[in-house]
Amino acid sequence: MRRRLLAAAAALLLIGGAAGSAAAGAPARQPVQPATASVEVPAGVSAGVAVFDRQTGTFTEQLNTSTRFRSASVVKLLLALDYLWGRGPGYTVPAADRAWLEPMLRSSNDNAANTYWSDNGGTAIITRMVSRLGLKDTAVPPTGLEGYWGYTALSARDTVTIYRYLLDSAPGPVRDFVMGNLRQSTRCASDGFDQHFGLAGAFEKPWAVKQGWAGTSYEKGTCGPVRTATATPAASPAPAGAADVDLTRPALHSTGTVGAGDRSIVAVFTLHPVGTSYGKAYTDIGRLTRSLNVPGATRSTGWWYGTWSDHVNVRPNPSTGNAPLTQLPSGVEVLVGCQARGEEVHVPPYTNDWWAYLPQYDGWISSIYINSPDNRIPDVKDC
């Protein structure tokens, strides 16, 4: 029996159309965008975007570049730079400090940020870094919320300034330490969320990324071994209308560099409608990022398809016989590189023996979970 959903159900499960809406009848797959594209913001999303080409010294994309967003974990860049400031060109980070700095930069560890924030002056950290880097829009958390480092205000243009300092002005050891850790960004963050959205999903390596996410509607992370996410200052709820920064809508941000020699600096800040799931926000920031003109970037090849169901397992081969590598965010759009027949999977009343290879995970999911009209996905080559 063909396992496909009825048309009406498929329309409900599909994550977005060409412009990011969930309208019935929207195509299930999304082709890779051409390099000459410009910013395409999905419906319902607010965005601040900057793409700076270091080779030409010019911006190739600018959208709401001075708009302030709550930084979420992107502020950890400033925490790391504050720690490293003035250490000198021959400075080597001690092992004890690497033990918290590396997870904070690679896996967005919140406990490390909490400790550094409380032990080193909290908002004074932001005040110091604003002065040192000449940041124009960055501001401390609102009055009454000073303990919440994730509520630090940050803009796309200030984020470009931070990366330009790192790449062009910082002492070599500082540049190498911070950027080296961002190049080793782990797919699974410390809180269990899949953090390879945005830049990490749109472009092939080399890239270096620092991501951010905060939202009470986001389901608990299930990337890698299933775990329970712990509430942190970055994710804690706050009243609407605090200062001039929206603290209510779910946030998802992707920042970093793309291309050989860190050719392009990219900052993408997004806010999503209240109640948006993590998988939907993940898909929307991915579509926005793929629309950008990013010089030096190598774009991921394949077809983007929506998925359905919660906690879909990514397997090392087209079989359920081995432990999963990780689990997908619920309903997320994925890049399919090729497909092959494998173990037959049953999700009553449906059955399918085709499997989709996901190159960005180096793993497989049963095509029973792909939003496609047939068991074999149209347009996708055989592996």
Rank of each mutant, 00 (worst) to 15 (best):
G241M: 08
K220G: 15
A37H: 11
G302D: 14
F69D: 04
D246I: 04
D244E: 13
Y361N: 11
G286I: 00
S264W: 04
L182T: 05
N352F: 00
L292T: 07
T123C: 10
G279F: 01
A240H: 05
A10I: 01
P42Y: 09
A50P: 11
R315N: 14
L358A: 01
S66R: 13
Y282P: 01
G144I: 11
N109I: 03
Y369Q: 01
N371K: 00
D374A: 10
R2T: 12
G279M: 04
W304R: 09
N120K: 01
Y148S: 10
V314F: 03
V32A: 13
L325C: 03
R4L: 09
P295C: 09
Y369E: 00
L292F: 08
R3H: 12
P237T: 15
N371Q: 05
A267T: 08
R290N: 14
A72D: 03
T143Y: 11
S236H: 05
Y350N: 10
D119Y: 08
G337M: 10
D176F: 05
R376P: 08
D310P: 06
V51P: 03
P206K: 00
D191V: 11
L81H: 06
S254K: 06
R183Y: 11
S107C: 05
Y350C: 03
A267C: 09
C383F: 11
T36H: 09
G147M: 08
G306W: 12
P348W: 13
S372R: 03
P94I: 09
L335E: 07
E61L: 02
R175C: 12
P103K: 07
N114L: 02
A99G: 02
T127K: 07
G192S: 12
V334S: 02
R287G: 02
V274F: 05
A35T: 15
E219F: 06
S71N: 08
T65P: 00
A11F: 09
H346T: 14
Y91S: 04
T301L: 14
D97M: 10
V32C: 00
S73E: 07
I285C: 01
V347R: 07
P225N: 06
A170E: 07
L199Y: 12
L101R: 06
C223N: 03
H196D: 11
A112C: 13
H346R: 09
Q327K: 06
L84Y: 10
P359D: 08
T248V: 15
I368L: 15
I265E: 00
V226H: 00
K210N: 05
K136V: 15
